[in-house]
Design a binder for these strands. Structure first.
Length: 278
DNA sequence: GACCAGGGCGGCC
DNA sequence: GGCCGCCATGGT
């Protein structure tokens, strides 16, 4: 058993070879978290979770156990996925990043986050996102968790719709300010459930209509909000990694239904750990 | 003071 | 369709 819901507010993870919270948080798919004495505090939309690694179990205390069971993709066995990705050039990446999972980020949060991420660096736009939530998001009530001190939800679409170009500029969004205002208007006409029913190619086409969303950001939304495991967002790090692969290796990767998972392992190893893939 | 960061847009051909 | 310059901003 990978994990079990203990009650409405608690999950226990047993298979630690496929759940590494440090790797998950540093794999570039979630940007609102903080380290605490015992573990990590993580925010997703208007949800929160405290993740505490212990000797042979990880304990998650949260506002909604059912939500986070799906958020962390705990019904999926990543050991099976990793077996299908057992290529020599991926060995190192899987060794250090094999505990990464594909999260189901909140649609609006993922879209806004990755529009701001464009031609930006993680440290900087993470600070921008924190400021956005602090200034415009709803204060999370911490009555059932005293660790929740001054924690904010991601702003709702309605809250976001009140922001002006100048507001986004003040947050440090730079020239992306006007994309954000326009994309937020467009998001009001979109429905996550309806979009979820679309095949990946059709869904990508819909996402590409959003202002500030090009091929790479669309692929991030496909992987991190819609969990399309086969999608590979190609940023500067992944581009360099792909250039080192032979044509045959590239073909095999693109044809894998879990190419996006492989991409996450590589991104973490390259960008965060600076681990050579070969 | 260049160059880079989980790139996209608009103009040009 | 592809190519290219530009776009804020902080870090190295």
């Amino acid at each position: 058993m990978i994990a079990k819901i203990i009650n409405n507010h608690q999950i226990e993870i047993y298979d630690l070879s496929q759940f590494d919270i440090k790797a998950i948080l540093h794999s570039g798919q979630v940007f609102r978290y903080q380290q605490t004495d015992q573990g990590y505090l993580l925010y997703a939309g208007n949800h929160w979770a405290v993740i505490v690694p212990k000797a042979d179990v990880v304990v998650i205390t949260c506002d909604d156990a059912n939500f986070f069971f799906d958020y962390f993709d705990l019904a999926t066995d990543y050991e099976v996925i990793k077996q299908t990705l057992a290529w020599p050039y991926l060995q190192n990446a899987i060794r250090v990043g094999g505990g990464i999972r594909i999260l189901r980020g909140n649609f609006v949060e993922v879209v806004i986050s990755f529009i701001i991420s464009a031609n930006n660096n993680i440290k900087r736009f993470s600070q921008t996102l924190a400021a956005l939530c602090e200034q415009y998001g709803t204060l999370l009530q911490g009555q059932d968790c005293n660790l929740l001190n001054n924690a904010y939800a991601f702003p709702t679409l309605e809250q976001l719709s009140r922001l002006t170009v100048a507001d986004f500029r003040c947050l440090g969004c730079g020239y992306r300010d006007q994309y954000l205002v326009k994309a937020i208007k467009q998001l009001a006409t979109m429905d996550y459930a309806a979009l979820s029913a679309l095949p990946t190619e059709n869904l990508r086409r819909e996402l590409l209509t959003l202002a500030g969303v090009g091929p790479k950001v669309a692929d991030c939304i496909l992987l991190f909000a819609f969990r399309r495991y086969e999608v590979v967002p190609v940023d500067t790090w992944i581009k360099k990694a792909l250039e080192k692969l032979t044509p045959a290796q590239q073909t095999a990767l693109w044809q894998s239904p879990y190419a996006g998972v492989a991409q996450q392992y590589m991104f973490y190893a390259l960008q965060y750990l600076h681990t050579d893939l070969s």
